[in-house]
Amino acid sequence: MNRSSGLSVRLKLTLSYAGFLMLAGLLLLGAAGYFLLRRGWLQTNEAGAWRQSPGTDLVRGFAPTAAAVMVFLLVFGLLGGWLLAGRMLAPMDRITHATRAAAAGSLSHRIHLPGRKDEFRELADAFDMMLARLEAHIAEQQRFAANASHELRTPLAISKALIDVARADPHHDTGELVDRLHTVNTRAIDLTEALLLLSRANQRSFAREHVDLSLLAEEATETLHSLAGQHGVTLETSGDIAPTTGSPALLLQLTMNLVQNAIVHNLPGQGTVWVHTGVRPKSVVLTVENTGEQLTPQLVATLTEPFQRGTERIHTDQAGVGLGLAIVKTITEAHEGILTLTPRPAGGLRITVELPASSGE
């Protein structure tokens, strides 16, 4: 934004301080002159008789002193105001320097303003916190872009290799080639749709309606019942009506992702998934808990990052595209909710989604 140049804040504060000091001096001198004139208007002569003394004599004697005092106050006000304003605005120089450094791309720069808490230090601390969050967000986006490029490049490279093989060997089994191409393209489509869903949730461009999480939990478990049977996993659903406000489609996707993740990453042939909904004073809770391998808190803390799949990056038919919990996190944040991941002592994972309770219920 182009702005015309004006007086600096330091100069404005200096003039304001000097002007206030001059005004106070004028009022003080005016009051002093008034009382002197009142006291000097009636005086006694040598014989002890009262005589009237003209006020102009007092004015002539008082005026030079008053003028000298006002000049002193003006000079003192300007110098003192300039120094005080500079001392008060010194933190602003550091904040401005940090802002320009951030605008130039140096997000690692911090102000670290010393001293006790005041308005400037609160502003500096808030700015440092904003830079830290912005730096972390950009680093996460860079990792996401790199991982997404890698994930998208893999099916494209496989498709190209299959086509090159078919072109070099016309007698190659076309049925097998078509099946493999179909699998690879399906994976690429699933990844693209997941990226679009993640982008939509990030933009929060959705209409809000009344939603019951318990109904979504039932729908998700019914839909994924066959998948649980294939993995030998038992599904158990319980809980109360949990009314909230949001996008039914996105919240259903959130629930489906949680249940599917709990089924796939489980003990083969003997696993269990518990899906529970509950109500708190000002929120509703969806909890999905599963048996499985022992997980460390450090590993659990990274599971919501895009393209993270438990203990290692795997590419199986049930592994998904690595965006399941990342989508869950984004949808939860888009609904002003809280996502909590906790490793179970016996193995597996406990995931809790807490959303604001619906005010219409």
Rank of each mutant, 00 (worst) to 15 (best):
M1F: 13
M1K: 14
N2I: 15
S4E: 12
L7A: 05
Y17H: 15
M22C: 12
L23C: 11
A24M: 07
G25T: 04
L26V: 06
R38D: 07
G40P: 09
Q43D: 13
N45W: 06
A47P: 08
W50R: 15
W50K: 13
S53M: 14
P54M: 09
P54V: 11
L58S: 04
V59S: 08
A63I: 10
A63W: 11
A63P: 07
T65C: 13
T65I: 15
A66D: 01
V71E: 03
F72D: 03
L73M: 12
L74D: 07
L79E: 02
L79I: 08
L84Q: 11
G86C: 03
R87P: 01
P91C: 02
M92D: 05
R94M: 10
A104R: 10
G105I: 07
S106T: 14
S106M: 13
L107D: 01
I111K: 02
L113Y: 01
G115H: 03
E119C: 11
R121C: 06
L123P: 09
M129L: 15
M129P: 10
M130E: 13
L131F: 09
H137N: 13
Q141A: 10
Q142D: 11
N147T: 03
A148D: 02
S149E: 12
L156E: 05
A157E: 10
I158K: 10
A161D: 10
A161V: 06
I163C: 00
I163K: 07
D164S: 05
V165N: 12
A166I: 04
R167H: 14
D169T: 15
P170T: 04
P170W: 05
V178R: 12
L191I: 08
T192K: 14
L198I: 10
R200A: 02
N202P: 07
F206A: 02
E219W: 08
E222W: 11
E222L: 14
L224T: 01
S226F: 15
G229P: 06
Q230Y: 11
H231E: 11
H231V: 06
V233S: 04
T234M: 12
E236A: 14
S238G: 02
D240Q: 14
T244V: 02
G246P: 02
L251C: 04
Q260V: 07
N266W: 08
P268Y: 00
G271E: 00
R280T: 06
R280K: 11
R280E: 10
V284E: 05
L286Y: 01
T287K: 11
V288Y: 01
N290F: 02
N290Q: 01
G292K: 08
Q294G: 06
Q294V: 13
L299N: 02
T302Y: 05
L303W: 14
E305K: 15
P306I: 00
F307N: 00
R309F: 14
R309T: 14
I314Y: 08
A319V: 01
G324K: 06
I327H: 00
I331A: 01
I331V: 09
E333D: 13
E333S: 09
A346D: 15
L355S: 00
A357Y: 07
S359P: 15
E361L: 14
